[in-house]
Design a protein around this nucleic acid. Structure first.
Lengths: 233, 233
DNA sequence: CAGTGGTCTAGACCACGGG
DNA sequence: CCGTGGTCTAGACCACTGG
């Protein structure tokens, strides 16, 4: 059995990973410098850099200039959550998505939501209620406020054909936002829409998205009682 | 006002981002090739590559060989979730973490958990119940099964001083795992530990982590009713 | 101050896959 | 086929920071 060849950065990465997982590089220990490691594997330092950077991004290595690279003592890996589009989420579950725009009007902002959006309570916002369906069965009940100052075109939008969710994603790209999941008893309106008893525990997502200047939208999604939010680690 | 200088890949990235957000590069449209863009900004193609790759990883660009790079029509950004250590999560909330190991024994695996862990029901597993506290107030109630086949040292471990959570992270680095959040009525035991009424809606996390060979642990965290899982987008 | 990671460059080869 | 992105290389300079 001869030595393996390490040509690509993915091979270098795999080799480093192997040494970490086999404890050949102990947690907290200093590993060889990029130059050394490159010499050992007969490749360019750039290639090693790419590999180690990749492992560092995943939290398995801690890199510091001058101090060198160490194996993380408590390797913490992050799960990625990708649920910008409800319809996509439903499709990913093998069901056919659809939605009902229950109502769409304009109304003043409740004070606790105004705080979350960093907006004054004064000006009325667009308000939309939507029921999302998976294979014609209730999936989630959505309550949404839209700031027309950030998205003037929203005033003329019709959310019956394209959901507010998708419409906003297309017309108002956001800079940053906040997600907030909690467990809450279903409110009367949500319970009716979802077809469950009031007070049934439901998973609730509150999301605020901000544009370059001000908040774009606040949305609360109350998911059906059997909903599970799953992610890979 | 003279032209800006684009030396680093972060500057190139910023410029590309500006063009995307300003719609100078429309959604779905083809953007200049790396070579073109590099010429325009007077930098190496490698630098442009680094910048565009970064934007592609965030889902703002779609890159294909030969077909070129396009602006994503539905820019979907992923939120990162980092909750491998309960104690860290509590600390991040500005509270002081502690825990009580309520019980630790060995018992057969309930069939639905065995399925989740891809293990036979036969052999008994280590079972641990832990209450996590934030500033001495109940934070989460943890129920856990540990597979001694994957982590033999766990048989002699004492989870009173170091939580099972942290002990496993140190002694049994995992390859991959699954997270599953749902809203559930508090079970009797959890309700008592958390100091809330039974049936109160609680956020529940079921997590399975796997080692290179077999499952390492299954854990259910029932969070206190006022718990919010927050993430940035 | 000096070693380490971070990055840029110019050039090269290759894999993929659209036309 | 052949343009595009993906990557490797060798060399260089720089930024940071520990000793």
């Amino acid at each position: 059995m001869r030595n393996e060849e390490y040509s690509g950065w993915e091979d270098v990465r795999a080799e480093a990973l192997r040494r970490i997982q086999s404890r050949a590089w102990a947690p907290g220990a200093l590993i060889p410098s990029e130059e050394e490691f490159a010499r050992e594997l007969s490749c360019a330092r750039t290639t090693v850099n790419r590999a180690l950077r990749s492992l560092a991004e995943e939290g398995l290595l801690i890199r510091k200039r001058r101090a060198g690279t160490r194996v993380a003592e408590l390797p913490q890996r992050a799960a990625k959550l990708n649920i910008s589009l409800v319809a996509e989420e439903i499709r990913a579950r093998g069901a056919s998505p659809s939605h009902l725009c229950i109502l769409q009007d304009s109304r003043p902002l409740p004070s606790h939501i105004a705080a979350a959006m960093s907006l004054p309570v004064a000006a009325p916002l667009i308000y939309v209620e939507t029921l999302h369906l998976a294979d014609a069965r209730p999936f989630a009940f959505e309550t949404r406020f839209i700031n027309p100052q950030s998205v003037p075109a929203a005033r003329e939008a019709d959310f019956a054909s394209v959901s507010a969710n998708e419409w906003l994603l297309r017309h108002a790209p956001f800079n940053h936002g906040t997600l907030d999941y909690s467990a809450r008893p279903a409110e009367a309106e949500a319970a009716e829409a979802l077809g469950c008893a009031p007070q049934t525990p439901t998973l609730v997502l509150d999301r605020v998205t901000h544009g370059p200047e001000a908040a774009i939208t606040w949305v609360r999604m109350a998911y059906a009682p059997d909903y599970h939010l799953t992610m890979k680690l």
